[in-house]
Design a protein around this nucleic acid. Structure first.
Lengths: 242, 242
DNA sequence: CGGACGGTTGACTGAACTCAAATGGCGTGG
DNA sequence: CCACGCCATTTGAGTTCAGTCAACCGTCCG
């Protein structure tokens, strides 16, 4: 089952036939392994392939001139790096492996071939990019108009749903292989303040942390406190687990 | 010249033939006028057309539960509302007219027809959505990793370039029909603090404000202070004016 | 065993927010 | 043409949330 996550992610948006599922399986022409903290795509690079994360976590990030780093997206198993990036432009930011990753490389024309053949996949790819944008917008709301506490709570809610989609969250419990520094760079906070907010989340009983495992004892409560409404993730059906 | 801005915007990304330019002219099936502060597309709506701003300014915005408002994008003349939105999903945010607007409505199949016929336009549309995403990422960097002063300076730099593209900035001077409240909602700040930062920008001599007219006496200096690098806007050619 | 890395905590600082009041421009209607 | 109200801008004073700096701890791994 090499592309399990990819199929599951796409099926969050569109029901696929057996043929369409196997079409997805033929997409990757090559598979790379990228070690933790190494670049999957570097800033300034001109990508020749579309990439998809098959295993592990990655992060888009931009650096600013006074040494600051901002993570602008997390890529989970099943997520495309940039489905329309090929031959278009130079990367204005980098994508780095947060954990060791298995990354699939897709020929540009393979995407065209598959989408021409199966409109459902075209739809699913489009919707997937629309959702990526919606996530960016929610991060903006979190950054400027939510408290640090809500910001992090909202991020956890988002990760919870997205991990659910690819079966990486069982019983509202999942692995978050991020350092508090990573979370801070994603939320626009310092790692010290992330630590304080995580403590508060623990003390208020809305999350439980053991190492990099996070459990959410009361999903509704966390979502209420986070001002989280999963609508923006545009899931196909209201999955009872998500 | 009804769609001047649209042609100019697209030509920032791809050189067009006369045929392609006139193909753009046939896109809109209908033109609406939307008054200032009225919705162009409302949250919860299921759009049946793609929309393009032909005249005036609009803003994407999301509201959160404690009354906060966050603008996540400004739409300038020539900008599409959402080129892939049709029939895909319910809007998870609204688009509001910042000034009186002329908005073009485009049938979904008109987009398909035009892009099938002219690959250059397909390219240009894709690149345009990639740039929209890049702008979102830069706003995230501004929000969490730049000072309020830099945040606003960066926004002004962005608007300057984008207005240049559609010939709405002559001699580094342009109209910004935003209230300080609007700017605050876009930058993730309060209008009071926006006011203070604008004063500082004025006092430091990097901008001049007269009503809603803004002049930038020294573009390089403003960009240096803002940590602004226009690379992320992926312009086709380094236009000396931008 | 020792060093590196990540997490945790405390004391202090400061940037941005809040609240409040005053100012100024502009359109409308008397 | 003035008076009025509305809206946006401007400024000050006080507050607070998140950042900074620094120390310490725990654990993993070479």
């Amino acid at each position: 089952m090499p592309h399990q996550a990819l199929v599951r992610k796409i099926e969050a948006f569109e029901t696929l036939s057996e043929d369409e599922r196997s079409a997805l399986g033929t997409l990757c022409s090559e598979i790379h392994h990228v070690g933790r903290r190494h670049d999957i795509v570097s800033e300034g690079e001109r990508p020749t392939h579309v990439r998809v994360v098959l295993d592990g976590w990655a992060a888009r990030h931009a650096l600013n001139d006074d040494g600051g780093r901002r993570i602008t997206a997390f890529l989970l198993p099943g997520d495309f790096c940039d489905i329309h990036i090929t031959s278009l432009a130079v990367m204005d930011h980098g994508i780095v492996a947060v954990t060791d990753c298995r990354v699939g490389l897709i020929e540009e024309e393979a995407i065209e071939r598959v989408t021409r053949a199966t409109p459902a996949l075209t739809m699913a790819f489009w919707r997937s990019t629309l959702v990526d944008e919606a996530i960016l917008r929610q991060w903006l709301v979190s950054s400027g108009r939510r408290s640090a506490y809500q910001n992090i709570a909202h991020l956890l809610c988002e990760l919870h749903v997205r991990l659910c989609l690819v079966h990486l969250a069982e019983n509202d419990c999942f692995t978050v292989p991020l350092t508090q520094e990573d979370i801070g760079d994603a939320a626009g906070l310092t790692s010290v303040h992330v630590n304080r907010m995580l403590r508060e989340l623990r003390e208020r009983g809305v999350i439980e942390i053991k190492g990099s495992e996070i459990a959410i004892p009361d999903v509704a409560k966390l979502r209420r406190e986070a001002d989280f409404d999963p609508k923006y993730l545009h899931l196909r059906r209201p999955d009872p687990r998500c």
